[in-house]
């Protein structure tokens, strides 16, 4: 077993465990912390796929900003263990769990069935993306996808204004 293979299984198990804990733990703060753990795991998986820049951005944006926001909000609310963690109603809960399992089987099955297609078409060009992909990412982002990038900037501006408008409260230290 080579180092890459070991790394993949190690990270895959850790990430999946983190994801499952996020969903199953009753205390929301533990949920948020294990979500952060999952984000770090996904970032490490990005490194194993040679996407170094994206791995860094994943840590900065998801683990460093988004999940910290979750943790902070949860701590501010100071929620302890919830009484009703999951949906009520045994039948609807069973139906939902069954649907989830069915969906999982569907995706995994379809991936396994079509795996030949990918392995045939995807064997050769792997050498193209061998080393660091940061430069290529920057080039394509600012040429082919420049309008999408600009649209994202506008979106972020709107969202910032919206979030401030929503969270603004009367009183506090800045009341005039």
């Amino acid at each position: 077993m080579s180092a890459d293979v070991f790394l993949f299984w190690f990270l895959a198990i850790l990430t999946l465990a983190g994801g499952l804990t996020t969903v199953l733990v009753t205390n929301p703060i533990y949920s948020a912390l294990s979500l952060a753990f999952t984000m770090i795991g996904v970032s490490a998986l990005f490194v194993s796929l040679n996407a170094y820049f994206l791995a860094g951005v994943q840590l900065i944006v998801y683990a460093g900003a988004v999940t910290v926001l979750f943790v902070m909000v949860l701590m501010m609310f100071d929620l302890k263990h919830e009484l009703i963690t999951f949906t009520r109603g045994k039948i609807s809960g069973l139906v939902k769990a069954g649907l989830v399992a069915l969906f999982a089987g569907l995706i995994v099955g379809s991936v396994l069935i079509t795996s030949d297609v990918f392995s045939k078409s995807g064997g050769a060009p792997e050498a193209v993306i061998g080393g660091d992909t940061t430069k290529a990412l920057g080039t394509i982002l600012f040429s082919k996808y420049i309008f999408g990038f600009e649209a994202l900037g506008v979106l972020l501006l709107i969202v910032a204004i919206g979030a401030v408008a929503l969270a603004r409260s009367k009183g506090g230290t800045h009341a005039k």
Binding site: V23, K96, V100, F103
Partner: peptide
């Protein structure tokens, strides 16, 4: 590629289960 896709599918389904089953 298959391994990464299956891992991604399982993570996705875990998230979906969370959306459907959790109440918070």
């Amino acid at each position: 590629l298959t391994h990464y896709l299956i891992l991604s599918a399982l993570l996705f389904v875990a998230g979906m289960a969370g959306v459907l089953l959790r109440r918070n």
